[in-house]
Design a protein around this nucleic acid. Structure first.
Lengths: 154, 154
DNA sequence: TATTGTTATACTCTATAACTATA
DNA sequence: TATAGTTATAGAGTATAACAATA
């Protein structure tokens, strides 16, 4: 019997998580912290408020993650040049280098996975996944709008 | 520019997690607890040791999850008929009914997502995802074997 | 008055290690 | 001696609420 499409996707989700956990193991890093480093690599030096928005997590949570990453030498807090309430968080040189390697592994993984698909199926898979992302985004946005509406006016 | 295949898959991972979190919201359930209920629905009444193996978490963790699910009325502990050390965990009738609804939503989601893919691409997407799962399983198994080997003989 | 970050508090998931009761 | 489950302890991620400093 053919596994459901959803089951295949959930299986891929699970395997991705394991693969990432494997990649972090031994570095002392966790998924949440690597996510923050990833955001920081793409956004550049940012205030914690901004990181909270980008990570979709509370500012309080960012305080904790930055505390941990500062202790492990991956990020640095520096005063904001024009707003004395805020701090700027930025990657240390070592972390910048590490994120470069991680980016490289990322594109390598992409090549490996793309190579696993039969060449004549690749275009269809691209179109299919793109369509799935679009549909899922709609589903989630609608559900979250509903949740927001019922929370605002219960 | 075309997003990478990996990025699409990671995006799907993220959207799935949000969709599931949305589905549980208000029920007081969490991802880990629903996962346990799901396993229990498919395995039937099980010892905690067995659940620990199936969920790939420590037995201690199962104690905590079952405690929570018992308090919320989703599972019941009963004595094992032949081994007085063990307990059997089983779904309550209410939880059995709820899992039936969840199973139904699951197949509905599958239909929705499959419907989002152009009919002529569906077969290729099935083949492609199947190939991705196989390749990822190999990658993860190899990585975990390496980790195990270096842990056993460091 | 609004915003930035932090302290205080709490809950869940997760793990290891030691202990109890049974096999 | 080995196994099933629990108690004890610990750390990470997450959230809300109250508070300080600054805008």
């Amino acid at each position: 019997m053919e596994p459901l499409l959803v089951d295949r996707l959930l299986r891929i989700t699970d395997l991705f998580q394991r693969d990432m956990a494997r990649a972090f193991a031994g570095t002392g890093l966790t998924t949440a912290r690597v996510h923050l480093l990833w955001v920081l690599q793409h956004a550049g030096p940012s205030t914690q408020q901004n990181l909270a928005r980008l990570c979709e997590v509370t500012p309080r949570n960012i305080t904790g993650l930055v505390d941990g990453l500062e202790a492990s030498g991956h990020v640095r807090r520096s005063p904001h040049p024009s707003d004395r309430r805020a701090v700027l968080v930025e990657l240390t040189p070592e972390a910048t280098q590490m994120m470069g390697r991680m980016q490289h592994e990322h594109t390598q993984l992409d090549e490996t996975l793309r190579g696993a698909i039969a060449p004549e199926d690749r275009a269809a898979v691209d179109r299919g996944l793109s369509a799935l992302v679009t549909r899922l985004e709609t589903l989630v946005a609608d559900a979250e709008a509903d949740a927001g509406a019922s929370r605002d006016a219960p």
